[in-house]
């Protein structure tokens, strides 16, 4: 076990935990801890091995290395890939330096992003939107033409917009770890690099649809849902079916009684609880195929909850939490 302190909150975590995981544990354990203590992530995905370390949004500063070696680390570190040591102390939101560096990273991610949110199916559940809203500038300082790519067709189910990609490599890791074999990867280098299949080829196997769920931006979206509706006009419900390939536990996004989209169930960190198969995701678009469990909890700060009914109990809990936080501030 290692004792680690992040932004003044201390928690004991098993050895081998990363700083990011420790911060998330902190937030999960203690409702009073600001959820922002857990650094934002764009490329890290706890369900995928060796993910993380690329986007640099999760950087934190380590002010004390460990009990044995109390020297601070010289540079900001990627919290998703840095393991904790006993006695480690780090700062995230309490350090202006970290916030400044993160601002820089967000700016870098946005300079070549097309900002076509109004026509992007990911809008409303896009991690880059959230990140930009929280850490971005209101106006860009980049006045050159933005990078473009040739459109490539990767099959009937998945739509790829390379211009929106931020190179998180999550989809590459999904293909490596969840599916039988990988047919896509990174081509070229530097800012010309792109995610692509080597010779134009459809990405096609039973679990390929999961690359849509892991994509933090609108680079990979569901073709069967394309331009059907904005996410915040749909009703998310939890549902399941007996599936031979996967757990069959999904979230359905309904409009009236039509299923517009099927996705995995995402937790509060935006990561799916379980990966689902393409049959559940793309083929079963009839309500009769599913057993509905009930409305899906959506965080009330999310834009999706604007038109959404909340379960009364969770709403009360949320308000109670806010009131408590306010009273302790005084």
């Amino acid at each position: 076990m290692a004792k680690v302190t992040i932004d003044g909150h201390t928690i004991e975590v098993p050895d081998g935990t990363t700083i990011l995981q420790a911060a998330r544990m902190l937030v999960d354990k203690d409702k009073m801890v600001d959820a922002k203590v857990a650094p934002p992530t764009m490329c890290y995905y706890s369900k995928l091995k060796t993910s993380g370390g690329y986007c640099r949004t999760c950087i934190v500063k380590v002010t004390k290395g460990s009990e044995k070696d109390p020297r601070p680390m010289p540079k900001p570190v990627a919290s998703c890939r840095t393991k904790v040591m006993d006695g480690m102390e780090g700062v995230n939101i309490t350090s202006p330096e970290v916030i400044e560096a993160r601002k820089g990273v967000v700016e870098f991610l946005l300079i070549n992003h097309p900002l076509d949110c109004p026509i992007c199916d990911q809008a409303g559940e896009c991690h880059l939107q959230d990140l930009g809203y929280e850490h971005g500038l209101s106006k860009t300082r980049y006045d050159f033409p933005r990078r473009t790519f040739n459109q490539i067709d990767i099959g009937p189910y998945i739509k790829m917009h390379m211009t929106r990609c931020i190179m998180c490599f999550r989809c590459v890791k999904v293909a490596d770890q969840i599916t039988d074999y990988r047919v896509h990867g990174m081509l070229n280098r530097g800012d010309a690099s792109e995610i692509s299949t080597y010779i134009q080829k459809a990405i096609d196997n039973d679990f390929s649809g999961n690359i849509i769920d892991v994509c933090p931006v609108g680079a990979l979206t569901d073709r069967t849902f394309r331009f059907k509706s904005r996410v915040w006009f749909t009703k998310p419900v939890d549902a399941h079916r007996n599936c031979t390939k996967c757990s069959g536990k999904v979230a359905l996004w309904l409009k009236g009684n039509d299923i517009l989209r099927v996705t995995g169930r995402k937790d509060q960190w935006g990561e799916v609880e379980e990966f689902i198969c393409n049959e559940c995701r793309f083929e079963k678009k009839d309500v009769k195929d599913w057993t509905i469990e009930g409305p899906r909890h959506i965080d009330r700060h999310s834009v999706i909850s604007a038109n959404h009914y909340e379960s009364l109990a969770s709403l009360k809990l949320d308000i109670g939490k806010q009131q408590k936080a306010l009273s302790t501030k005084k």
């Binding site: 300079i111 980049y142 931020i166 190179m167 280098r189 530097g190």
Partner: peptide, 21 residues
Amino acid sequence: YHHESCGQCSPCREGTGWMEK
């Protein structure tokens, strides 16, 4: 440096190109 950046992490991938421009 813009030409030789590998494209893995965002500050270098985007920043080197920006500085060159």
